[in-house]
């Protein structure tokens, strides 16, 4: 046999920034946005613990344009998390078999998204109603 000298090509260090992997990276960052909102709540909790003055400052920050903008960005990111989460969800389960056939994963995603969307709207409306 002629000379065997396998050549290993180096992996591009920025593979995560190029299609088709870029969408995956964006999806992962939307999960980080979840923790950013958690951090906002945590800061609120710390302020609350420190007392009315500290908490008042936190509330004033929440009312500021910076905060509103940040939270709109967070809301968009978390909505992206919601959609992509339920797209992956069927992959983590065994195939759903109904009437001897596999239920397409996209169908599971659509149904669950509808239920979750409906639930979220109900929660917000109930909160508004409760606050009156």
């Amino acid at each position: 046999m002629s000379e065997k000298r396998p050549f290993t090509r180096p992996i591009a260090s920025d593979w995560w920034a190029h299609p088709p992997y870029r969408a995956y990276t964006v999806r992962e960052l939307s999960g980080v946005a979840v923790a950013v909102y958690g951090a906002v709540l945590f800061v609120g909790l710390v302020s609350l613990w420190r007392g009315p003055d500290s908490y008042g400052a936190f509330l004033r920050f929440l009312k500021s344009p910076v905060s509103i903008l940040l939270n709109l960005v967070l809301l968009a990111a978390v909505l992206y998390h919601v959609v992509t989460w339920f797209q992956i969800l069927p992959k983590t389960m065994p195939k759903l078999i109904v009437d001897g056939k596999q239920v397409p994963q996209a169908r599971i995603t659509t149904l669950v998204l509808r239920a979750v969307g409906f639930g979220a709207v109900c929660l917000v409306l109930l909160t508004i109603g409760f606050a009156r």
Partner: peptide, 19 residues
């Protein structure tokens, strides 16, 4: 938890209530 409650929580605590 974030997928089910996240958007509603952000809306309520950080957008609707402060404004």
């Amino acid at each position: 938890l974030a997928a089910v409650f996240g958007p509603a929580l952000i809306l309520i605590t950080d957008l609707l209530a402060p404004t």
